[in-house]
């Protein structure tokens, strides 16, 4: 009944004959317009000779894909390592922030907000341009992984905190009634439940991490984007390659997002992200 109708549909009445006719006309016009738009894009490719097989045929070769997949493996390596570091760091920052030790709590709060308010690119430049000036040389893998992890840790700390807040108050009150200490309640009662609540949010945060890794070329780390650039100079096929790479990223991120929505649905929780928590 009306209760499970989505708002998108609830905005409209069940249509009468006039409305049905108008919607039909609108549908016709919009199909024509959308097909026109697609036709225009294809035309632009065609008249600029970008549909020429020489720009696309190398995608039929296994070597092309092997090289791209190797790049993708690099992307995934950076994303997962950064994700794990960010999770650990985010969890520590959150625990510090909710601890009863005032200076520690304030420090963790400040660090969390700082990491949340800096672009990951700025942090990458810090590790790529600034740190080496002080004589510290890091491998390119860590020059991209560490800043991406730091940027994500601030957001994850807030996600964890939202998870802790989502655990019903009665849980820790019941534990307090049993005489458990603050630390023990956090460890044994609150955290396990909070972690379950935030799993979908952690998965969706991976999308942000994957996006942040795409500037790995700055530190010359061979990720998907960097390898695509190499192929572009080999095959002299810029347009096709950049579009294909964009589609690969979109597909990965779309799949990750859908997976996190599926998890949230199954667990009956919601996805917390940068946009849903409090601003800095």
């Amino acid at each position: 009944m009306s209760a499970n109708v989505s708002m998108r549909d609830a905005l409209y009445e069940a249509p009468g004959p006039k409305t049905r006719r108008r919607v039909a006309i609108g549908t016709g016009i919009s199909v024509v317009l959308l097909l026109g738009l697609i036709a225009f894009v294809i035309r632009q490719f065609y008249v600029n000779d970008q549909l020429n097989p020489r720009y696309w045929s190398f995608f039929a070769r296994w070597t092309t894909w092997r090289f791209l997949l190797r790049g993708l493996a690099g992307t995934i390596r950076v994303a997962f390592t950064a994700g794990i570091i960010a999770m650990i760091l985010g969890l520590l920052l959150m625990l510090g922030r909710i601890s009863h030790n005032r200076p520690l709590s304030v420090a963790c709060h400040v660090i969390t907000d700082l990491f949340r308010s800096l672009p990951s690119l700025l942090l990458i430049y810090f590790f790529f341009l600034v740190i080496p000036k002080y004589g510290l040389r890091m491998p390119s893998f860590w020059m991209i992984t560490v800043p991406v992890a730091l940027a994500a840790s601030g957001v994850l700390a807030e996600v964890f905190r939202a998870g802790v807040n989502a655990v019903p108050k009665g849980q820790s009150e019941a534990a307090m009634a049993l005489g458990m200490t603050h630390g023990k309640i956090t460890r044994k009662i609150v955290l396990p439940q909070a972690l379950r609540i935030v799993v979908p949010s952690l998965v969706s945060q991976l999308v942000v991490v994957v996006k942040d890794t795409t500037v790995a070329y700055v530190v010359s780390y061979p990720d998907l984007m960097q390898n695509a650039r190499v192929l572009i100079s080999n095959y002299d096929a810029l347009v096709s390659m950049y579009f294909v790479v964009a589609l690969i990223y979109i597909a990965i991120n779309y799949a990750t997002n859908q997976f996190s929505i599926y998890l949230a649905h199954r667990e009956g929780t919601s996805i917390m992200s940068r946009t849903t928590e409090n601003p800095v």
């Binding site: 998108r8 409209y12 249509p15 409305t19 919607v23 609108g26 549908t27 919009s30 199909v31 959308l34 999308v207 994957v210 996006k211 795409t214 500037v215 984007m225 950049y242 579009f243 790479v245 964009a246 990223y249 979109i250 991120n253 779309y254 997002n257």
Partner: peptide, 27 residues
């Protein structure tokens, strides 16, 4: 209420929320 426009809007959002900004920028 026009289905093709809804689909186009949904596709638009999925494309641009999932593409890394650099990837879009190089294009």
């Amino acid at each position: 209420p026009v289905k093709p426009l809804r689909v186009a809007g949904d596709v638009y959002v999925q494309l641009f929320r999932n593409i890394p900004t650099v990837s879009l920028l190089v294009i």
